[in-house]
């Protein structure tokens, strides 16, 4: 196995590890830092894939990832939590060991689901689709278990990162128009989330979304 492939596999494993770390992280500030780290690993792996396959447009997406997900979005989130004064907030998470176990089950499930697809993949992508799917499902799990608006958004962005990883490693990146479109959507979404944080805070005096469970059928 060539060195580049080993590096990509290592980075993929690292990505999965970071998602697990995010799942267990109680502090909002550390969660955002983990998200930035995830972006960095993603940019690096995209870069290595670009180098290995010689796909030029992947260099652009690696650059775009670096700009958007390592610099711009974490900076925006840091600014937001400073302005909202939730920088040192600690979330009470229900039962971390249980969510870890559920996470492991999800990983096994996704590897099984991806197994037939991995078999038809090129050398590079074998196994990576399983990891990408596992990160997608773990990010979904994180969205379900979080009760604070900011950490839900970080989970959402991590979900998007996992999808980006799937695109970069399994298909050598989507066509550039599509990738730019997705990046634009994510950026606009983060801005709108920011607007929401302030509106929610103004209305409920808290960023805890358990206040927002009033709408029911009755």
């Amino acid at each position: 196995m060539p060195l580049t492939l080993q590096i990509v596999n290592l980075l993929a494993a690292l990505l999965l590890l970071i998602v697990f770390a995010m799942l267990a992280q109680r502090r909002i500030l550390s969660l955002i830092n983990l998200f930035a780290l995830q972006g960095a690993v993603l940019a690096l792996s995209t870069f290595v894939v670009a180098y290995y396959t010689g796909q030029h447009h992947l260099y652009y997406s690696a650059g775009l990832t670096l700009l958007l997900k390592v610099m711009l979005l974490p900076w925006l989130l840091h600014r937001l939590i400073r302005q909202l004064d939730v920088k040192w907030d600690v979330e009470t998470l229900l039962n971390i060991p249980v969510s870890m176990l559920v996470g492991i089950a999800l990983v096994i499930f996704s590897f099984n689901l991806a197994a037939p697809i991995s078999q038809m993949a090129h050398g590079l992508t074998r196994g990576l689709i399983g990891i990408a799917l596992a990160s997608v499902l773990l990010s979904l799990l994180m969205m379900l278990t979080r009760r604070k608006a900011v950490s839900q958004v970080v989970a959402f962005l991590s979900l998007e990162n996992s999808l980006f990883f799937a695109a970069a490693s399994a298909t050598q990146g989507m066509p550039l128009v599509v990738e730019f479109g997705i990046a634009l959507d994510v950026l606009v979404a983060t801005f709108i989330f920011g607007i929401f944080f302030f509106q929610i805070r103004e209305t409920f005096d808290s960023l805890d979304i358990s206040h927002m469970e009033k709408l029911k059928d009755d």
Binding site: M143, F196, T203, I209, K214, L215
Partner: peptide
Amino acid sequence: TPASLEAAWKYFILCGV
């Protein structure tokens, strides 16, 4: 209103996922 914010947040998160 609180109800409309809740609805919008739900819409955003669920449709986003």
